[in-house]
Amino acid sequence: MSIIKAKDLVHEYIRRDEDGNVKMIQTAINHVDMDIEEGSFVAVLGHNGSGKSTFAKHINVLLSPTEGTVWVDGKDTSNPLFTYPIRRTAGMVFQNPDNQIIASVVEEDVGFGPENIGVPTDEIWTRVEESLKSVGMIKYRTHSPNKLSGGQKQRVAIAGVMAMEPKCIILDEPTAMLDPNGRKEVLAAVHELNKKKGVTVILITHYMEEVVDCDRVFVMDSGKLVMQGTPKEVFSKVEELKEHRLDVPQITLLAHELKEAGLDIPEGILTREELVEALCRLS
């Protein structure tokens, strides 16, 4: 069953001058159709300005479609009655870890979402505890967020979303401001949530390495959905990805170059192990 469905989605940013006349129209999303299965882990790839963040904001009703429709869990996002039910279904984690933590104590921040949707006090406490545990941050529950590292702050933000018990969680470039260690921490936490709790994960990113373990990859360029498929399918088209100004993971690139040079190995190799195996099979 699909949890998120976009049909013929168009979004235009309209800039007006002081008299309210339209000065410039920028099409951020240009007739996109997308279908995301419940329980899957998908990635939306694209370089800056490809429309991937704009798309993410449609899922959480922070933006409304100019044309076309987005359904989240069967609910049309353009219906204002559904705004809050949809935000409860689809939680969102943003890029800057500092600008999305509201409270001065970790556990209070995680409790912010449940407080907003009117969860009774006792249940808030169980939810906060559970979601802090699920991202491995329970030790820091009484700490101030200012003392945490970037990766830890992002995990707190993820716990804050999890405490609202959403069916799906959208991460809008959650690792863009983190160091490699923080990046690993956050991704591990997200993968764990997807596997253990069956939460649908939509990861918006431009880091190729983060995409390798996904179920499905969508590639966007200039507002259009240009490629989709499993990571293997997408990464086997190295030349096409380059046209969309995206790089493939280093291992995939190496395998591709080796193949170009005449070695008999398959396209779309994603991990070091796969490459080793393919090379060993050569006689």
Binding site: L62, F94, N99, Q100, P114, E115, N116, G160
Partner: peptide, 26 residues
């Protein structure tokens, strides 16, 4: 810029002001 980001993050977490809110630490 931070204020704008924060407002968006609060909205994404269903913040609608004081009405209908419960308290974690009443």
């Amino acid at each position: 810029r931070r204020a704008d980001d924060l407002a968006m993050a609060m909205e994404a977490r269903c913040y609608t002001g004081g009405a209908g809110r419960t308290k974690m630490k009443p």
